[in-house]
């Protein structure tokens, strides 16, 4: 034997090829990828809001409402609504992982932080809806 023992190992280990469908292998991976893909709809929602603001400032509001009422546009926005709501639930639920709040040595439990986050979400949503919908 001229080769030192063990030197053949590096070439003989088996390395599986990249799994192109890894995200479909478990339910949790799929949910994770869907959670991340909500970002595409977040970007779309921002674009939609920019269109709204542009229409308001340029005096083309009627064109905007006509565009928004097209069936495909409503379909896209229903998807955007589901995606942003899913983003909100997952993001606000995961927040306590990064922020460990300690009050006088006592660690604030995750459900309290999550509860606070969801309450803030509800309160802000109601407030925004009020300012947009109230009669002048």
């Amino acid at each position: 034997m001229t080769r030192p023992p063990g030197s053949e190992r590096a070439t003989s280990t088996y390395r599986p090829p990249r799994d192109a469908f890894w995200f479909a292998r478990t339910r949790n991976y799929t949910i994770f990828v869907l959670r991340e893909l909500t970002s595409v709809l977040v970007a779309w929602t921002v674009v939609f809001l920019l269109l709204l603001v542009g229409a308001l400032l340029n005096g083309t509001f009627q064109d905007f409402t006509a565009l928004a009422a097209r069936p495909w546009m409503i379909a896209v926005n229903v998807v955007a609504l589901v995606a942003t709501a899913f983003h909100a639930v997952t993001f606000l639920n995961l927040a306590p992982k990064a922020t460990v709040v300690r009050l006088d040595g006592w660690r604030v439990p995750a459900w309290m932080i999550q509860g606070g986050n969801h309450s803030a979400w509800l309160a802000l949503s109601v407030l925004i809806a009020y300012f947009i919908l109230r009669s002048p």
């Binding site: 949790n28 991976y29 994770f32 991340e36 995961l94 992982k97 990064a98 460990v100």
Partner: peptide, 23 residues
């Protein structure tokens, strides 16, 4: 880390690595 969270779920000792990484 993109916070998949599976590390914490499979940990047999409840270490919660996902939390350690986010912190």
């Amino acid at each position: 880390c993109t916070f998949v969270g599976e590390c914490t779920r499979v940990c047999p000792k409840h270490v919660d690595p996902a939390e350690a990484i986010q912190r």
